[in-house]
Amino acid sequence: MIDVKNIYKTFFVPHRVDALVNVTAKIKAGEVVVIIGPSGSGKSTFLRCLNRLDTANKGNIFIDGIDVLHPSTNINLVRAEVGMVFQSFNLFPHKTVKENVSLAQQIVRKRPQKEYQEITMSLLKKVGIEDKKEVYPSQLSGGQQQRVAIARALAMNPKVMLFDEPTSALDPEMISEVLDVMKELAKDGMTMVVVTHEMGFAREVADRVIFMDQGSIVEVGTPEHFFKTPEHARTKLFLKQIL
C-alpha cells in the first residue's frame, strides 16, 4: 500500500537540519504501523512526506501504486486518499462540527447533498459526537475535537490514515476516548500509520513498530520484539526513558 524508497528530507531554514536520512519502509494494506522515537527524530516529517505536505528531496514514495513525488501526479487526489490527523486537531473554527466533516466531501469529492449528509451523520455516530453536530469546535473538549478531526479525515474514504501524535495535546482523561476510536478503526481493517508515545496502544494494536532516531529508521519489529528483546542500544535507551 505504501512504499517508501530511500527518501531524504533536509530543511535549510532557519538552519540546516537533516530531518530524514535514507528512509525506506513498506506498509501493507490493513497494517497498523506505530512509529516511535525521541522528539525531533523526523517522525512528523516522515508522515508529512507521505502526502507531500513536505516534499522529500530525494527518493521515491508510492501510495497504492501512485508515484507521490512525480510532478504530473495530481497531489490533491492523493491527499484525499490519505487521511491525516494532527496533534493540534486543526478543526476549522468558523465551521460547525457537521460542516467540518462535510465540507471536503462537498468540494473535493463532489458528493450530492443527501449522500454527504448521510455519511457525515454516520461518521459522527461512529466517533460518538452526533449530539454535538451543530456546535462550533471551540465549544468541544480536546478529546471531542480530535474525534471530529478523525471523522473529518474518514469522510474522504481514505485508503490510509496517518496520525501524528493524536493524543499528545489531550488531558490524560481524554486520551482513551480517542484511542478507542482508533482501535475500532484498526479492527475495521484500516491501514494506519500512527506516531504516538502511547505504548499501550502500540502493544495492543500495532502489527509493527518502527523506531526512528535522528532522521533514520533504527529498528523495525513486532511490538513483542520491541518490548521484550530490543536490539539496538538507542532503542533500549529510548524505551527505558518512556516506559
Partner: peptide, 20 residues
C-alpha cells in the same frame, strides 16, 4: 495548521483559501 488540515483533505490552494 488550518492550511495543512484543508490541503491534507485534498482541497486545492484556491479552495483552502476561499473556504478556510
Amino acid at each position: 495548521g488550518q492550511t495543512e488540515a484543508s490541503r491534507s483533505l485534498g482541497m486545492t490552494y484556491v479552495q483552502s483559501m476561499t473556504y478556510i
